[in-house]
Amino acid sequence: MTDKAVLTVEALTRRFKGGGGVTGISLQVGAGERVALLGHNGAGKSTLMKGILGLLPIDSGDVLVAGHKIGSAAARAAVAYLPEAVAFHPALTGREQLRLFAKLARVPRGEAENLLDKVGLTHAADRRIGTYSKGMRQRLGMAQVFLGKPALALLDEPTSGLDPIARHDLYQLIDALAAQGTGVMIASHALTEIEARTDRIAILRDGRLQADAPLNVLYARAGLPIRIRLQAERDAGALYAQFGGQRVNGAKVEFAVPQGAKMACLAEIAAMGTAVRDVEIIPPSLEDLYRHYSKVEAVPWQ
């Protein structure tokens, strides 16, 4: 967490009549910080974002964006948003759409032109958005996020449905956004990408915040076991007798070891000498971690 919070959410609650919503959410985002907001469909990610944006009336709680109350003109000017799978009017060109947003954000027109260049859309700026690929539309969406150097940016599933290259481009833009000092909150399902790209992870489940910490802290707190996979020189029977776990393909054995017992176990393996041809150490994946915090029964390890 950096010293300056651009978003402070305190005990935000918004319930829906038919069930769902968020309850008692408190979190902060610092300037230049990238926070991943993880959760299943219906966990409350979009509700939380819309509450912060002032699009959805909240039942109780406080939200400050760059020190301003939500809904105020100052708060709206300080926050940028990229809705999930946004589609702009197909009849407009990228340039026209971005110029309109620049006008609405009270930003000089020149900035819109620079941003088209920044997101790599200059060549397509005068084509209708209807002819854009999904990746290009998302890049146009990101361009408007940059307008006016917002203090806070909320990105709802920014990479869903994008191919790997488009996704990579988009994450580069997100990095650039954070580098200019904007606090970024990214709601996503794309677990593996979040790992490398965010400073902190917040996990929502049934509208409640289950975890909110940097990745290494979450791993340490969860204390998830490490998987060890041994390949036998000839027959895995002896290894299986020693370590238990599961046999794979006749020549391999896999088993789980608690974090603290890792070194002792490795010493034991080393002591077996040439009976072990190879050893693989598999740390818990982000998915395991996510499952742990969202309390979904993990599928038994194969």
Binding site: A73, P83, A85, L104, A105
Partner: peptide, 13 residues
């Protein structure tokens, strides 16, 4: 339906 309404309404307009 396009999702642009939510976006426009986050602008100071």
């Amino acid at each position: 339906e396009r999702g642009s309404l939510a976006l426009v309404l986050t602008y100071p307009v």
